[in-house]
Design a protein around this nucleic acid. Sequence first.
DNA 1: ATGAAAGCGCTAACAG
DNA 2: CTGTTAGCGCTTTCAT
Lengths: 342, 342
Amino acid sequence: MRKKTTIHDIAKELNTTAATVSRALHDHPSISVATKELVRQTAVRLNYRQNKLASSLRSGRTHTLGVIIPSAEISFFGSVVHGIERIARRHGYSVLLFQSNEDPACEAEGIEALLQAHVDGIIASVTKETTRYHHYLEVKQRRIPLVLFDRVNDSLEVPSVVIDDYKGAYLATMHLIEQGYKRIAHISGQQHIKIFNDRLRGYADALRHAGFPVEDDLIAYGKVSVESGRHCADRLLSITPPPDAIVAVEDFTALGAMQSIKSKGLAIPREIGLIGFANEAFSSYITPSLSTVDQQTIKMGEEAAQLFMELGKGKEGNPPPLRKIVLEPVLMIRESSKKTGS
Amino acid sequence: MRKKTTIHDIAKELNTTAATVSRALHDHPSISVATKELVRQTAVRLNYRQNKLASSLRSGRTHTLGVIIPSAEISFFGSVVHGIERIARRHGYSVLLFQSNEDPACEAEGIEALLQAHVDGIIASVTKETTRYHHYLEVKQRRIPLVLFDRVNDSLEVPSVVIDDYKGAYLATMHLIEQGYKRIAHISGQQHIKIFNDRLRGYADALRHAGFPVEDDLIAYGKVSVESGRHCADRLLSITPPPDAIVAVEDFTALGAMQSIKSKGLAIPREIGLIGFANEAFSSYITPSLSTVDQQTIKMGEEAAQLFMELGKGKEGNPPPLRKIVLEPVLMIRESSKKTGS
DNA sequence: ATGAAAGCGCTAACAG
DNA sequence: CTGTTAGCGCTTTCAT
């Protein structure tokens, strides 16, 4: 078992040629069932395994899907990747994962690396700090299928999967209103990220529809992190009169806000209501457990991968229609927002 | 920019050959500075990028490092991967990540996939359920450098990085004793996993050294999960007299135990002390914050990658000595174990 | 239904 | 210092 067996070895063994062996192994229609069977047996016997490098070099396809996520430490992304992997595997693709660490430079490097690895397509969620999209444009120009999810950018005009962030924030805010909270603040994120802006609009519209004023003072703009959540909440709680509930742009921000609220000795949900966004793993662990908005992560990943598979089918010539999938957000009501105890 | 430029294009442009271009691009010593510069400029001008597939096919090396972890949702592993990536990148390697989902079959598939991808080496942490190691043995037989971390298996005789799990559990237990807890229980994991057994021994020895009895009743064997932690704690708390502190084999188990304790209306740390193991991200978020043992994750990853780099150097002939690196555990004292309030 | 031949893009002897 | 030559292992026309 010292030297690796190749299709030539199999061919020699059977007094045939490499071409036949290759075709047999690929279940090519113009090969007799008999030889197919023979080839397969010999392949097993000689412990043959395909050299994907050679195959890819020749065919130009690697059956590999590149995925770029900001961080694997955010369980949301880990979960989406699961969904992607499931569909990918089902179609014979493997997944090459790259973390951008929320750094646009690193993100560009990642794309470069994936292109060099000759991935057949890229599925990505952009960095919070990304403002220029030249690296993504290059992917498009090279005609490599590109799909975005969650943190998307419409100007790129690529297929994408998101949840209805506007609606999610709307539902979250409405829920707090129904619970009897009267002065609801919002901690938002960078406005150039579409989903954060959508959530802000959802929050504002819910207030308006319920006949509440939308006060600029009650909206804090942060950087979407535990730290930033804490600072923003500190600021919000210091205004007079203070808010009696907070809609956070996502769960880590909500966690920071929770720390701030606790440190001031205020009771959640009795004195202050709190709701997050993302349904991060920790949100159900903490005390009080955090109400939040679930984003259907697995499904999001599956849809994104599915979108890629469809792109591949759009054979040269007829460009496939630009599909944007919008999933429904699901309100997860836990302790942090249950003022009425219902 | 329709067709990709190859070294032949550059060669043609400069009236030289592909070989020279290749060497120039690789900074080969026997190429004049002048031509090197010329080649490099033309490469940039023609927007050349190396086809790694072809390069790897020819050279047999991919400059890719395969990493297998049980789950990306355990922040411990995510963090170790960070450490690995840092060192890998520094040496010009990229990282191909594979999740085994704690499933030995999936783990075997992953190894197979990495071998097919022709990775230059594999760094792995084995599944909790892995009892047979044939897939890892195949890696060894194929002379692919293999390094294990955290969940290691000594019978494989490969380089590895772990922390001193025995000492970690010893320190954790001793800390509880110092806090004045008198009846300290332990929730352990699958005994065929070395680190779980080491922690059990550390717990037991700490008790002995402090003159406490080691009671079999006070040791619960679980499967290392939130669920299992809850069940084990339920059982431990129902014996008479019940324990007044618990050392959990890792943080998710501790989390389950915390839920169990809370559900019985017992106060942590006043009535029951609790300490985990791993310093998972959530451990500082929860209430009360969880005391635990930090495993120096980043360093563990860095050391593992470093070990791989050294293996590569062990040129044919002199097999490098089998190195096993043991890192020091660091006690993280938070609220859940501070009985004295000191 | 199978074979022959021609590379995919690159690297590495071996010459000169 | 640079060119020549020969593939790495596989796929894919084009013949037969």
